[in-house]
Nucleic acid binder design. Structure first.
Lengths: 210, 210
DNA sequence: GTCTTCGAATACAGGAGTGTATCTGAAGGG
DNA sequence: CCCTTCAGATACACTCCTGTATTCGAAGAC
């Protein structure tokens, strides 16, 4: 049977539970619309426990931000790892967006809440900008590998193409959450594929005889 | 000199001032982070005046939503009006984004706040989805005109291309607000231009001998 | 087995926001 | 010129949230 938890483990567990509760509540009611008491209650504790683990709401937002963005960057890194061909990268991107789609509404609401909260806090803002940059850099690497595998010269710097794809993902998620009819489950993936093909076509047109 | 205001005019003026105050405060502190009192105070009134003009915060959010989206749709419609050539549409899009860029942070914060608020309210959600659809339809029309003027067959339905451009605008605004270095003032316009050229190239490649 | 330490619960004081009920003064009809 | 009406101000009762100070009880060292 399970070993009794040590104090440190117990504390870590409590923090995790508080973070998960906060993530859910922030997505549902917003950061400002969620009270410390609600977070503690959903996690199965009281306000006292909350203040024992975090200094206040701002600090749990910060912790959540680090936890989530770190995961995101790792996922992006996985896109490029040992990706032999262009199609491998594309296929992984497709799979990633399909998985993401299942929990899109909650995920996007949380991401948006954290973004907005960060906008109003200079320190958090630079932190978020930094994480986004790192995430995009991983995507750019994956793209560079893909183009290289096809011996195609990208029609613009891969960092810029990554910025476009990254932005497109966010923007289309917003539309998709608004209306399933206007932006279906495959929209994002379809758009990515269209852009990839378009860029290949443009590259070919500009450099006719590679 | 100015005519004394009639009661109806006076009421209308008060509503406008309350709406403007709310727009600013929502962008700065969020919908949930703004109290009715703050709105009334910034507009130069008291809470009593606010409740005389709006039923509550939800109703002023709704009014704001209608006011702003109606403007947005009109702007999109202007893109396509009497646009002879492709380049005219592109130039207008470019000018529009340049103008938008000057107040991007506040505009995007407000747009995002309204979006998030709407996500949690089924009625508002469908209303927003409807406005976005209409806005996108105007953009699609403008694109269709542009392609037709060049006798080019779009590489995908114009509605889908409009969805991509629309989404890209939102997503890249998010990145731009985060960091001026990673997404400069011209990023959005550059991206739009790149996509347009890419699509033309793809259309040409798929239909070699128009 | 006892005693110290620390994670979590409880209690409390203060502040902020909400909505309504009531009051005031000016617009504008007759 | 009066007097009704209505936009806006004021006052109040109520709820909710925060942060800290204190207490409780179990882990784990000796």
């Amino acid at each position: 049977m399970n070993q009794r938890l040590t104090r440190r483990q117990s504390r870590e567990l409590t923090r995790e539970q508080l973070l998960d509760a906060a993530a859910g509540l922030f997505a549902e009611h917003g950061v400002n619309g969620t009270s410390v008491e609600q977070i503690a209650e959903r996690a199965g504790y009281t306000r006292g426990a909350f203040y024992g683990n975090f200094e206040g709401k701002r600090e749990i937002v910060l912790a959540l931000l680090e936890q989530r963005t770190e995961r995101e960057i790792a996922e992006m890194r996985a896109l490029g790892r040992d990706a032999g061909s262009f199609d491998t990268v594309l296929e992984r991107l497709r799979a990633w967006h399909r998985r993401r789609d299942e929990t899109l509404t909650g995920w996007l609401a949380l991401r948006t809440e954290l973004w907005l909260y960060g906008m109003r806090d200079p320190e958090l803002r630079t932190l978020i900008a930094d994480r986004e940059r790192r995430s995009r850099a991983e995507l750019a690497d994956a793209l560079a590998q893909g183009f290289a595998a096809r011996s195609v010269t990208p029609p613009a710097p891969v960092a810029f193409l990554a910025l476009i794809l990254h932005s497109l993902g966010d923007g289309m998620s917003i539309q998709r959450v608004l209306s399933d009819e206007d932006a279906g489950a495959e929209s994002i993936v379809d758009a990515i594929e269209l852009l990839m093909r378009s860029w290949s076509a443009l590259a070919a047109a500009e450099e006719p005889h590679g």
